[in-house]
């Protein structure tokens, strides 16, 4: 009787001791970090803020004046003389030769270099105005009317809010909508929308996935 009780006590101590030792081993394992942590994938850098700002690609004359920026470039008669007719000169390939003060202008409006005359859009009698093809004077800041005199369907779309940039409120009674004009995005002298650097693409979760994808191709 006492023999079996003694055996039972011994067994119990043995089991308890074993459990304690295994817990201690586990603790030691965690302490020494035997299993290690899962390897961290490389940190993905934050995207540059220029990819998340809502600025337009350029500033229109109207926006420049409204924001109180340096509008001296719009003051034609700081250099030109009033009431003196301007004479355009062309090179052998019938490109208009620009004065060096107008170096920043790239003549790239329209294909086949046919839109090479400044006074297709500017008013030759008053340089501070633009003129439509049917002779209406248009203020520099009201350029959509001039652009629309040639680009009818695009102008119609713009008026309906289908072409061009919008921001603000889609629900007009809750707040204002901000509609951008043609020259907020298009350079009138070279209106094709410029190419730009794309923002970084999705980072692959596992570098291996990239390799295998390349192999498939």
């Amino acid at each position: 009787m006492s023999q079996s009780a003694m055996n039972g006590g011994f067994k119990k101590s043995l089991v308890l001791g074993g459990v304690t030792v295994s817990f201690l081993a586990l603790a030691a394992g965690f302490f020494l970090d035997l299993w290690g942590h899962p390897t961290q994938s490389p940190l993905i850098p934050l995207v540059a803020t220029n990819f998340i700002n809502t600025a337009t690609v350029r500033v229109s004359a109207g926006e420049l004046i409204a924001s109180g920026g340096d509008a001296s470039g719009l003051d034609c008669y700081a250099c030109h003389e009033k009431n003196k007719p301007l004479k355009l000169t062309f090179d052998a390939e019938s490109n208009v030769i620009l004065a060096k003060e107008h170096d920043d202008i790239v003549m790239g409006h329209g294909r086949h270099k046919r839109n090479n005359n400044c006074f297709n859009c500017h008013d030759d009698t008053n340089l501070e105005f633009l003129q439509t093809r049917d002779g209406h004077q248009v203020k520099l800041v009201d350029s959509p009317a001039l652009c629309g005199s040639c680009h009818g369907p695009t102008y119609r779309d713009w008026e309906a809010g289908v072409h061009g940039r919008t921001s603000g409120y889609w629900k007009r009674d809750l707040g204002p909508i901000d509609r951008k004009v043609c020259t907020s995005c298009h350079d009138p002298h070279s209106p094709a929308f410029p190419g730009r650097e794309p923002a970084p693409g999705p980072h692959l979760l596992h570098p291996i996935a990239k390799v295998s994808k390349e192999r498939i191709r």
Binding site: F51, I52, A199, G201
Partner: peptide, 8 residues
């Protein structure tokens, strides 16, 4: 034009 600004 595929600039991915919308994504970010």
């Amino acid at each position: 034009i595929g600039c991915r600004k919308c994504v970010h």
